[in-house]
Each structure stands twice: as structure tokens, then as C-alpha cells.
Write a protein that binds this DNA or RNA. Structure first.
Lengths: 226, 226
DNA sequence: TCTCAACAATGATATTTATCATATAAATGT
DNA sequence: ACATTTATATGATAAATATCATTGTTGAGA
């Protein structure tokens, strides 16, 4: 079993507040998993009973809307933790986590984490701050969904993907979402999303390289996004 | 100065975990304010430096969208706390709080609250759970905004207002929002909101009594809301 | 009581977005 | 390598929603 102490991704999450002994305890009780692209880490409504630490890969957090469409609420990547909210609220997961690429994740049981809450204030403060950050993002996102047009949301999302996940050598966005997934991030029909991408392409704002996307004119995209 | 110990609203918030001594400490450092309808408790971007405990009244939490329209993110009422997220994140307020009716609020300085975080685990757990609940609502809300039609959102909001704030003796909704405010809760143009209210009225789902609203057929409204 | 300003209502129209249909391109399994 | 599925693309059209213009209503303050 690999040692959390030597795992570099912990430095990027609330876990960085844990000391040597605490990390050793986690190493002993955690379980590591490989998740293949397209598989669930957990599903909406499921009891999670612990948190997941993402060692490698990216996943989407989705929620099923009553109309039957999935909405992508957030993308979560290497170094981040999953399932904190459910654990603290002591409720089933509100969102599903689905791998966008092959992933390595570690599962840490709830009991262990709750123990640290009592003893390590810095750790619980870190978790709180993370959740507060998520809340802020969610509120901002909600207002965007309610007040911005699909075009504005698409431009904004493209810039977000560019800034957050970067580009490949050929300048294409490193994170590769299907048109369908992109549509369900911005909350629109797949066809509308494709059409707007075509428009952006014709306007020279982006370039479509097969299924991949290159951002050609970021200042203009930012202007559209507001 | 009134005593927090004898204030009943604390029973409805995270503050219920505080013991007698802690409540006395708060009584000594808190300040009480009257906020008139339409006035701000705090404004987006402002440094809050503490939390507000709502003793009486209702306020709206709004965020200004880049298009210049205000969006109502949440309604907050008697017994709830305000400003927790900003305090924990150590960031300026992300939302403005505006009184919908005359309010009584108490302000508790940050230093005091942070002190309790260290010493009273139940209290910090309560705060965490509240914020987790807010996050869950925000995510749900985001998906609604992204995936539901304006009509669905209006029906849903009417039911929410009914269930949360109840009705007057004449069956009208107790909380009275202007058409403009209702529109900015559901994320649509004021005229669209008014038009849909007229439609609901003609269909016998609601009744418009001047500026007030009576829900006539809740089951059908729920069906529309999904 | 009158006046003005804010709010509510509605029509006409433009714009945005979804839906349905169909075509093409790319990926997948055998 | 071929057939079959899946994803992308685009046109035609319908539906939802926003915008602009106008009128009616209400309530607060002079």
C-alpha cells in the first residue's frame, strides 16, 4: 500500500494540514482505486461514507434534472477532494462523480476524517474554506445561468477550460469534452452548443480541429463572456 | 443591552450550540441594529468582519450580474445567520443583503465567533452543516436555472414561497415580493414574469389580488414545477 | 384631494433557443 | 476491412423569451 506521506497531491488539498502521524493513519485505512473513463466514482443518492482524494485524472460532477438531462455542475481534478459535503451533512451524495479520463483515487473512511475534525483545527478550517469556496462558485454560477445568454456562457466556459486545464502542444484545449458535455455545462441543447461553436469558428474566435477546440481570440471571447 | 441568553431566535441557528457563558460573552460584544425595508445590511464587495443574526424580518441576498440586473440568490429570515461564508473564507461579501421588510439584526464581531470555532466543536460543526446545506441548495438551484423553463421556475418559486413563508388570513402569500423581485428570483424579464402570472391566473392556478398572489391549485402548480 | 412616481399589465415585435429531421464524419467491435 | 453505432454538423421550423411601447393602477406625499 502506497504511503500518503509520500503522495504529492495531498499538498493541494485540505489534507496538507495533517501531520506525519495523521498521514500514516490514513495510509493504513485508505483504499486505492482505478476508475476507468466513463465510470462512476459515486452516484447521486448513494451513501458515500467517506471522502475521495483524486491522485490523478479529471471527473465531472453531474446532477440529473427532472427533465432527464444531466447537468455538469463542476469539474474536479488531481489534488482535490470529493464527497466532503455529503460527509459533513451526513446525507447521500447530491451529485454524481463520473471520470472524464482514467483516474486514480483513494478512499478515506468517514470515521477517520471526522476524528481529525476534532483534533486538527487547521484541517477542519481548510475543509470549511474549501466548501465556502464551492458555495461562492455555485452562487456565481447560478447567477450566470439565470442572467447570461447561451452565447455568453459558452464563451465564458471556453475561457474557464483554457485557464484551468491549459492546452496541448497543438494549442487545442487539454480537457476534451464532447459537444454534449459542453452543452450540459452551459445548460443548453447539444445542437445549440454546436451551432454556436460553428459561429465562433466562422468569426475566427476559435478553431475546430476535429472534435478539439483551439481558442484563437481570447480577448474577444472574454468580451463576449462579459 | 438585551441578553442573547433570553433571545429565542438563537435556537434556530448554529448558535444553539453555545453554552451560557458563551452567550453572555456574545451579549457583551454584540450590537443590535434596526434595518428599514429597502436598506442594505451589507453590500457585495464589502468587508463584513462578523456575522449577523436575524432577530426579526426577512431579507434578500442578491448578486449583481454583469448585464446590470440583480439576481436574488436566496431569501433569509428570522433565526438565520448572515455572513458566515465571507467570514470563514476571509473574503469580502459575495452577495448583498437587502431588507424586504423592517428588520432587527444583531452583529457579532468575527473575533468572537472564530474563538468559538476553536473551543466549541458542536458550534463549528453546526456552521459547517449550514454552509453545506447552502451549497446543496445552490447546486440544485443552479441546475434548475440551467435546465428548467421560466414557467417551471415560476411555479416552483411560488410553491417555495408558499411553503416557506406561509399565507395571510386572506390566503395571499405572506411574503410580498414585487413582480420585479419575483422575476429576479427566477431569472427572467419582469414582463415575462407578469405575463406568466397572468396565464396562471387565467388557468385558475393562482389568483391575483392586487399585487398579492393566492395559490389556488397547488397540485397542478407542483406538476408544472416538476 | 390631487399629483406624481412607481408598479403592474398587455400588445406588438424581435431575438434567442429548442426541437425535429437529416446528412456527414468518426469511432468501435467483429 | 466492413458494418454498426455514436458524435458532429447543419437546415428548417416551432416555441420560448426578451425588448420596446403604451396604458392602466396604486399608493405616498405635497
Amino acid at each position: 500500500m502506497s504511503k500518503c506521506e509520500q503522495c504529492i497531491v495531498r499538498e493541494f488539498s485540505s489534507l496538507k494540514a495533517l501531520n506525519k502521524d495523521e498521514l500514516i493513519r490514513i495510509s493504513e485505512c485508505k483504499t486505492s482505486k482505478t476508475i476507468k473513463k466513463g465510470e462512476n466514482i459515486f452516484e447521486e443518492g448513494e451513501n458515500v461514507n467517506g471522502i475521495f482524494c483524486i491522485k490523478d485524472g479529471i471527473c465531472k460532477l453531474t446532477k440529473l434534472s427532472p427533465n432527464g438531462k444531466d447537468h455538469i455542475v463542476k469539474l474536479v481534478t488531481k489534488g482535490e477532494l470529493l464527497g466532503q459535503r455529503s460527509m459533513i451533512s451526513d446525507e447521500p451524495a447530491n451529485l454524481s462523480a463520473v471520470a472524464l479520463e482514467d483516474m486514480q483515487v483513494c478512499f478515506i473512511p468517514k470515521a477517520e476524517i471526522l476524528g481529525f475534525f476534532d483534533k486538527n483545527n487547521q484541517f477542519s478550517m481548510n475543509v470549511m474554506k474549501t466548501i465556502c469556496g464551492d458555495l461562492r462558485l455555485a452562487d456565481d454560477h447560478m447567477v450566470n445561468m439565470a442572467q447570461k445568454s447561451v452565447k455568453e456562457r459558452l464563451a465564458e466556459t471556453l475561457i474557464y477550460l483554457h485557464e484551468t486545464f491549459g492546452t496541448n502542444a497543438d494549442k487545442t484545449l487539454k480537457i476534451q469534452l464532447s459537444r454534449d458535455e459542453l452543452a450540459s455545462m452551459i445548460g443548453t441543447a447539444t445542437e445549440s452548443c454546436i451551432r454556436l461553436l460553428s459561429d465562433f469558428n466562422k468569426l475566427g474566435l476559435i478553431e475546430l480541429v476535429g472534435k478539439k477546440i483551439v481558442l484563437k481570440d481570447i480577448p474577444k471571447l472574454k468580451k463576449i463572456a462579459d
